[in-house]
């Protein structure tokens, strides 16, 4: 009687451990879905895009300025220039505003008000990019045409713009990347050890000197990471720029010129593209993918450097 009980108990335990092992394997399967998806996306993107580099010639594809699918000419330099000009202009507007705002939140505003301010910014960060784009189209584009153009004409009488331009796109993108820059920079600044601040103040530096010469330099890696992440967001942004930059694949000469971006071109042309055109668009996707991955890697390195020094 007793022996049977032990035997059945052993059997029960064995089946239980088999079940546990099976479950662990199933969990592992779920765990690798994300990683496999990234692998699949990467492989598929490159497999679909790389033939274009071969067909059109890598040099031509990257450095030819004409993008003219109807003539079978695929050069992406104008698109890359479009993306970079909009992104960099957005950063010029967004960085000072974002970092100032981060300092304001962490050092100047009382904690309670800062929390409300941050909450508002986080809520606004979720506003869909197409809404920002629509606002840009309705408000910023006409404003650039009616108010900025006359100012530019004062020293360049030949200037002209429809308002659909690098500048309009950059203004909206700057607003869109502000939440990223503000909240990550704020984290970086407020995680500077309290002793740094105390030491600086004890040495007779006033608050401004402490902020500008101690806190910001100490939080520099984190601020840099936030800027690069914001930049990644700007480069990858599609719908807003699609609505306001004018989508003209030509090399821009001034901030008031229209441009087409890497993302906008893919979104606009993919649904009606023929085979070789589709291939070219995938290759544009490859370029975009490489730029974004590079930016993400740099941002992670910067963030890690901050973490390493802290610990």
């Amino acid at each position: 009687m007793r022996i049977i009980t032990i035997a059945s108990e052993q059997k029960r335990r064995r089946s239980r451990s088999v079940r546990e092992a099976t479950i662990e394997r199933l969990l592992f399967l779920a765990g690798i879905v994300g990683a496999l998806s990234v692998a699949l996306i990467t492989v598929f993107l490159f497999a679909s895009g790389l033939p274009a580099f071969a067909n059109f010639g890598l040099g031509n594809f990257l450095f030819e300025t004409r993008w003219s699918p109807t003539n079978g000419v695929y050069g992406t330099l104008a698109l890359t220039a479009g993306t970079l000009s909009v992104t960099l202009t957005a950063l010029v507007i967004g960085i000072p505003s974002g970092v100032a705002c981060a300092v304001f939140l962490s050092e100047i505003l009382p904690p309670k008000a800062a929390r409300a301010f941050k909450f508002a910014i986080e809520l606004l960060a979720g506003i869909p990019s197409v809404v920002y784009g629509f606002f840009g189209l309705i408000v910023v584009v006409p404003a650039v045409r009616m108010y900025i153009l006359p100012i530019v004409r004062l020293w360049d009488p030949d200037a002209h713009t429809t308002g659909l331009s690098i500048l309009s796109g950059a203004i909206i993108l700057a607003v869109m990347i502000l939440p990223t820059i503000v909240s990550l920079s704020e984290n970086a600044i407020s995680s500077v050890p309290e002793e740094y601040k105390e030491a600086s103040l004890a040495l007779g530096a006033n608050k401004r000197q402490t902020i500008a010469r101690v806190l910001i330099p100490a939080a520099k890696s984190g601020i840099l990471a936030s800027i690069i992440l914001g930049m990644g967001r700007a480069v990858g942004e599609t719908m807003a720029v699609l609505l306001i930059t004018g989508n003209a694949a030509v090399m821009p000469k001034s901030l008031l010129d229209p441009v087409a971006t890497l993302t906008g071109t893919i979104a606009m042309e993919m649904s009606y593209a023929d085979t070789s055109h589709q291939q070219a668009l995938f290759a544009v996707g490859v370029i975009l993918f490489l730029i974004i991955m590079l930016l993400n890697a740099v941002a992670q390195t910067a963030a890690k450097r901050m973490g390493a020094r802290r610990s």
């Binding site: 990234v38 699949l40 993107l45 990858g236 993918f289």
Partner: peptide, 19 residues
């Protein structure tokens, strides 16, 4: 696996759409 999974969050939506 973790690095790859986190990379998924960094892929811009237009690339996800393209894929």
């Amino acid at each position: 696996i973790r690095v790859f999974t986190e990379a998924l969050a960094g892929i811009p939506s237009i690339i996800v759409g393209l894929f």
